[in-house]
Design a protein around this nucleic acid. Structure first.
Length: 757
DNA sequence: CTAGTCGGTGTTTTT
DNA sequence: CACCGACTAG
C-alpha cells in the first residue's frame, strides 16, 4: 500500500478535529475528547498513522489504558485498521505493563523471580493480620481503612521511610503497619497492585540503564482515559517520556469519576505545564446522542467549576425529550422501568438496547425483582468475578504454593481449605514462631512442627501432601497440572461435600479453572521472555480477574452502576434513584463533593443514544428504613426544556414542574397516599427551590381504606399484586392493581376485599 | 472445628 | 433489609 492511499484510508472518515489529532506532528498532544466524540477511534488511528505514514516502528510505541477490556479492544482495532498483527506493539493496562517490566527486570527491581501478585482481597487479609500482630485494637484500626491508606501512600510514591518522625500518633501507627506489611510482602515474594506501579516507577527512576533503554525504545507513548491517572502513573509516564519521547494523551475532565480512589484530574492541567509544547485538541462533535440529550448533559456539567471547557454538539436530530418519572417508591420506580422496557420490546428493540443505571449496587435488588417477575432476561455487571470466587481462590492458593512455599497467604489458605486438623490455635503458634525466627510459615512448620504436640502429625501430613503434589505435578501441562492439584489437594472433595444451592456452581467453577488454563494462551511476549506457564497463568488470574457475572450470550437488559457504565453506550438508558442522598450520594452531599457526582451524572446521561429516562422515588427503603427523598438537585440543573415529566398511567406528558405547580399535577388528579407521613411535608419550599411533595391537609389523609400506592396486596380471586393507582373518592374510589399472574385490573376499592401483605 | 446466633454496618472499583 | 465478622455452644 503506498503512502497516498494509506493516508486517504486512515484520514478519510475523520472530522477536522479528529484529523488534527491523528495527523499531528510528533509533539505532545492532549486530546480533550468529549463523550461520544470518537476518542478510541482517534487513539487507534493515531497509532495506525504513526506506523503506516510516519514509519514509526511498532516497537517504539507504548499504548496504555486502565482496563483490560480497553486494551484488548484497542489492539484489535489497530490490527483491523492495519490489516496485520502488531505483536511488537506494547498495548496494555498500567498494571499489565508494569508487571511485564518487573518480570523482565526482576533482579534490578529487587524482586524474586517467582514473585506473585497479591489481589485486593488477600491484601486486606494480610493487613488485618498485621494489625492484630502489632496489638492495635482492631475496632480502631479497620483493616479496610488501613489498607486504603497504604495504597494511597504508594500511589503518591511514598515508602514507609519517607515519613518524618513528626507525625501524630495515628500516623505513626499507620506507618508502622505499612512498614510491617511491606516487609511481609517482601519476604513472601508478594506484590500488590499499587506496588506493581510503584516498583516499576522506581525501577525506571533508579536504574540508569533501564531508564535509558525504555526512553530510547518508547518514542511514542499514548494514554487513554488520562483523567483517571493517579500521581504515580503520571510520574511514571513523565519519566518514560523523558526529553525525546512524545506523549499523546486522550481524556475528558468532565468524566473524571475516580477521584475517590486517587485519580487526579489535575494531571490534565499539569500536562500543559510539564510537557513542553503540549497543544490541546478538542473533540466536541458527538456521534452518539440526540441533540436533546447533549443539551441536557451540557447544561448540567456547566455548573462545575474549573473545567477545561468543552461543549458537545451534534448535527443529528434533537430527538425525543428526556422523560422524568416521579415514583412513589422504589417498587413503583422499578415497575415504571419494566413497563417501558416492555413497550420497547414490542417495537424494534432488543433487550440489550436498554440499560438501567444506578448509583449504588444495593439499588439493583428491587429492579431485579421486578425484572424477574416480568420474566425479562437481564444481566448485572459487577459483583464477584471469576477469579475472585472463594473456591477459585482456594485453588489458586494451592497452585501458588506449588511454586513458592514461602507464600504465607497461600499457605494459610491451603491449610484451612480443605481442613487439615490444624486449627486457629496451632496456626497462631506457628505464626509467632515464624515471626521470631524471621522465616516463612512453611519453613517454620517443617522445622518446629514438633512443638505443636498432638497437632504435629496433622501438620506434617499437610506439608508432605503439598510436597507430594508438587512433585507429581512438576512436568505436567498447565491444564492437567491444575486438574491434579484440585483433585489431590482435596479441594474437589471438599466442595463435593458442601451442600446447598451454590455447591454445584462451585464444582463447576473448579472445573472451569481447568478449562481456563487449557485455553490460556500465553501471551507471545511472555513465551519469549521465559516465564513459566503456571506463573503466567497466575499473573493473568490476578491482573484480569475475568468477567463479572455470567457472560451469558443471551440478549438481556443491562444493569450496572453509573461507574461501570463509563465507556459504554445504549440506545435507551434509564437512570434511577435521582434523589438527594442517593444520587448525589449522602456522603458526597455531606462532604460537599458534588462536582464529581455531577460528572457521574454527566457520564450517565451521555450513555444514551436516543432516549433517556430519569426517575426518582419519593419514598425509598434505605437500610431497611423508609425514607422520604427529595428529587436530586441534578434534576433541576438539567435545562427544563429538555425534560418532560411523564405520567404513564394517564398516558400524558407534561413539562416537569417542581414545587407548587407539581403538587397540582400530582395530587390534584386523584393520587394520594394514606400516609402517616403527610404532615411531615408541612414546611415551605426547600432551599434548593424544590419542595418536597407537599399535600394539603385535605389531601394528606384520604386513606384509601388504609392502602398506599405501591403497596403489595392480595385479592381473593387474582392473588398477589401491587397497587398502581387510585382514582375517585369515597365509595366509588377505584384502584388499579398489577397482579402477579392476572395482569393489571381496575377494581372498586369498596368491593374488592383487598388484604395488605 | 463447625454451625449457629448476635450485633454492627452500610458509595462508587480496576488492577 | 441483608451481609459480614466475631463470638459462643456443641
Amino acid at each position: 500500500m503506498d503512502d497516498f492511499s494509506a493516508v486517504a484510508q486512515l484520514v478519510g472518515s475523520l472530522n477536522d478535529a479528529q484529523k488534527d489529532a491523528v495527523t499531528a506532528p510528533p509533539e505532545h498532544r492532549l486530546v480533550l475528547a468529549g463523550a461520544g466524540s470518537g476518542k478510541t477511534r482517534v487513539l487507534v488511528h493515531r497509532i495506525a498513522w504513526l506506523i503506516s505514514v510516519e514509519n514509526v516502528s511498532p516497537l517504539s510505541i507504548l499504548a496504555v489504558t486502565f482496563t483490560n477490556k480497553a486494551a484488548n479492544e484497542m489492539r484489535g482495532r489497530i490490527e483491523q485498521l492495519l490489516t496485520m498483527p502488531v505483536r511488537q506493539l506494547w498495548v496494555g493496562t498500567f498494571h499489565g505493563i508494569a508487571h511485564r517490566m518487573l518480570r523482565l527486570h526482576w533482579k534490578e527491581a529487587k524482586l524474586r523471580q517467582d514473585f506473585a501478585i497479591l489481589d485486593a482481597d488477600d491484601q486486606q487479609r494480610l493487613v488485618k493480620r498485621l494489625i492484630k500482630q502489632l496489638d492495635l485494637p482492631e475496632d480502631q484500626w479497620p483493616h479496610k481503612m488501613v489498607t486504603n491508606w497504604i495504597n494511597s501512600q504508594k500511589e503518591e510514591g511514598r515508602r514507609p521511610d519517607h515519613f518524618d518522625d513528626l507525625g501524630d500518633f495515628t500516623q505513626r501507627a499507620l506507618v508502622r503497619v505499612y512498614a510491617a506489611y511491606q516487609q511481609s510482602c517482601e519476604s513472601q515474594g508478594l506484590v500488590d497492585f499499587a506496588e506493581l506501579l510503584l516498583r516499576a516507577y522506581e525501577l525506571c527512576r533508579d536504574s540508569a540503564d533501564i531508564q535509558a533503554h525504555y526512553r530510547r525504545k518508547f518514542r511514542h507513548i499514548l494514554v487513554d482515559e488520562f483523567q483517571d491517572t493517579n500521581t504515580l502513573q503520571y510520574l511514571w509516564l513523565k519519566l518514560l517520556v523523558g526529553n525525546a519521547g512524545v506523549l499523546f494523551a486522550v481524556g475528558d475532565d468532565d468524566q473524571s469519576v475516580y477521584g475517590w480512589r486517587g485519580a487526579k484530574v489535575e494531571n490534565m492541567l499539569r500536562l500543559e505545564r510539564d510537557f513542553r509544547g503540549c497543544e490541546v485538541v478538542r473533540l466536541e462533535q458527538n456521534y452518539r446522542s440526540t441533540g436533546t440529550i447533549l443539551k441536557a448533559a451540557n447544561g448540567l456539567i456547566e455548573r462545575n467549576n474549573g473545567r477545561l471547557g468543552k461543549n458537545l454538539w451534534t448535527d443529528g436530530a434533537d430527538g425525543a425529550p428526556i422523560q422524568l418519572y416521579a415514583a412513589f417508591n422504589e417498587y413503583d420506580e422499578a415497575e415504571f422501568v419494566v413497563n417501558r422496557i416492555r413497550d420497547y420490546l414490542n417495537g424494534p428493540h432488543r433487550h440489550s438496547d436498554m440499560a438501567i443505571l444506578y448509583r449504588s449496587n444495593a439499588q439493583s435488588r428491587v429492579l431485579e425483582e421486578m425484572l424477574i417477575r416480568a420474566r425479562l432476561p437481564y444481566r448485572i455487571y459487577g459483583g464477584l468475578r471469576f477469579f475472585e470466587r472463594m473456591e477459585v481462590k482456594d485453588a489458586l492458593a494451592w497452585l501458588r504454593l506449588m511454586r513458592n512455599r514461602d507464600d504465607d497467604v497461600s499457605f494459610e489458605r491451603a491449610l484451612s481449605t480443605p481442613s487439615h486438623g490444624v486449627g486457629a490455635t496451632s496456626l497462631e503458634k506457628l505464626r509467632v514462631a515464624a515471626r521470631e525466627s524471621a522465616s516463612s510459615l512453611w519453613t517454620t512448620a517443617r522445622r518446629d512442627a514438633a512443638m505443636l504436640g498432638r497437632t504435629a502429625g496433622a501438620l506434617n501430613k499437610f506439608l508432605d501432601k503439598v510436597d507430594a503434589i508438587a512433585a507429581q505435578v512438576q512436568d505436567l501441562a498447565l491444564g492437567k497440572l491444575i486438574d491434579v492439584v484440585v483433585a489431590n489437594s482435596g479441594l474437589r472433595e471438599h466442595y463435593q461435600k458442601e451442600k446447598g444451592e451454590q455447591a454445584e456452581g462451585r464444582l463447576e467453577n473448579l472445573d472451569e479453572i481447568v478449562s481456563a488454563a487449557r485455553g490460556f494462551e500465553r501471551p507471545a511476549n511472555e513465551q519469549e521472555e521465559g516465564i513459566d506457564p503456571l506463573s503466567a497463568f497466575l499473573a493473568h488470574a490476578a491482573l484480569e480477574a475475568g468477567e463479572g457475572q455470567a457472560a451469558a450470550g443471551e440478549d438481556s437488559v443491562q444493569l450496572m452502576t453509573l461507574h461501570a457504565a463509563k465507556g459504554l453506550e445504549f440506545p435507551i438508558v434509564f437512570i434511577v434513584g435521582l434523589e438527594n442522598g442517593v444520587f448525589p450520594s449522602m456522603r458526597a452531599v455531606e462532604e460537599g463533593n458534588l462536582e464529581e457526582e455531577r460528572r457521574l451524572c454527566y457520564v450517565g446521561i451521555t450513555r444514551a443514544r436516543q432516549q433517556l429516562y430519569l426517575s426518582y422515588a419519593e419514598i425509598r427503603r434505605i437500610h431497611g428504613v423508609e425514607q422520604i427523598g427529595m428529587p436530586s438537585q441534578f434534576l433541576k440543573e438539567i435545562p427544563p426544556e429538555c425534560v418532560m415529566e411523564t405520567r404513564p398511567r394517564a398516558g400524558m406528558l407534561r413539562p416537569p414542574s417542581f414545587g407548587g405547580a407539581r403538587e397540582e399535577a400530582r395530587f390534584g388528579g386523584g393520587y394520594g397516599s394514606s400516609g402517616g407521613y403527610g404532615n411531615r411535608y408541612g414546611g415551605g419550599s426547600s432551599p434548593s427551590g424544590y419542595s418536597a411533595p407537599r399535600r394539603s391537609a385535605a389531601l394528606a389523609t384520604p386513606a384509601y381504606g388504609g392502602f398506599k400506592l405501591g403497596q403489595r396486596v392480595t385479592h381473593d380471586k387474582f392473588g398477589e399484586g401491587t397497587i398502581l393507582s387510585f382514582e375517585g373518592e369515597g365509595e366509588r374510589a377505584q384502584v388499579e392493581i398489577r397482579f402477579r399472574s392476572a395482569g393489571v385490573k381496575r377494581l372498586v376499592l369498596g368491593m374488592a376485599k383487598l388484604q395488605a401483605l
